[in-house]
Nucleic acid binder design. Sequence first.
DNA 1: AGTGAAAGTACAGCTGA
DNA 2: TCAGCTGTACTTTCACT
Lengths: 166, 166
Amino acid sequence: MAGTRLDPIDRKILAELQADGRMTNVELARRVGISAPPCLRRVRTLEESGYIKGYHAEVDARELGFEVQVFAMVGLASQAEADLTAFENRCRAWPLVRECHMLNGEVDFILKCAAPDLSGFQKFLTGELLTTPNVASVKTSLVIRCAKDDPGVPFDVLEARLSAAG
Amino acid sequence: MAGTRLDPIDRKILAELQADGRMTNVELARRVGISAPPCLRRVRTLEESGYIKGYHAEVDARELGFEVQVFAMVGLASQAEADLTAFENRCRAWPLVRECHMLNGEVDFILKCAAPDLSGFQKFLTGELLTTPNVASVKTSLVIRCAKDDPGVPFDVLEARLSAAG
DNA sequence: AGTGAAAGTACAGCTGA
DNA sequence: TCAGCTGTACTTTCACT
């Protein structure tokens, strides 16, 4: 299932659904050049095999009152596996933390956070993140503005690589 | 249109569609507790007023051969507005750069990049990013693993704030 | 509620190993 | 020959007025 090889039509389906996840199946079929039933079967297969992990509406955070976006660089005192996973579990429980990535290099984790306002974030920072056991250092950077926020992967790069490889 | 106030049903619709963007309208209506036709009208209104900016399939980058995810912290020599926007436009043209956020503090931009492998990223780093005019410093951190990657905003936080405010 | 379109199912034909 | 995918025909469900 994981190693299922994708043909060009499958990749086109993924690219189209990444760009517009609510496209109807007939429109999708038209765009990838096959009829609707096999197109739907391919979509189901891609979902079941894990290539498609879900569908999400992209909502406007600012319009909804989440004015503040912050990146937090976190260093831990102990990098033992148990301590790393303990911190990850904390992050999963914090709704303000939208993303949590473990990094190499000097900083252990980077968190992408969304908060209604600065005081809301400060409250989380001082009341939650900084009081968490094993958290040694936190450096935060406010997002001034977002120039690009594309979802997923660049399919044109993928196609270029595949055609180069043959 | 931008300042349109949302009622609890609208917010529930947004929360449901953020969690599952391909849900049918009848299922969505059932979950938010209204009948299908007004539910569809609300969705259309939310789309047109910009609360919903789009729908996207969440694809598995690793399965597709994008093994490497990197955060790049970029410092510019000049932070004049024209130079900032020039760099942002560069980022928009680079497919490997998926996100580009301008930050406050010591670093000017943070980029989230996706690449097929390390050499592919290195090629981009040395051949593109580091040779860009005005780029003074770049620090990169490889993502070891991703503990959390939730889309959008935490609607439970929003509801808590609204009920607290009255 | 009612119409028209899309989703989903069953089956038969084609293509390539 | 056989497996796998495709397309046509049909039923059910949904979108939309």
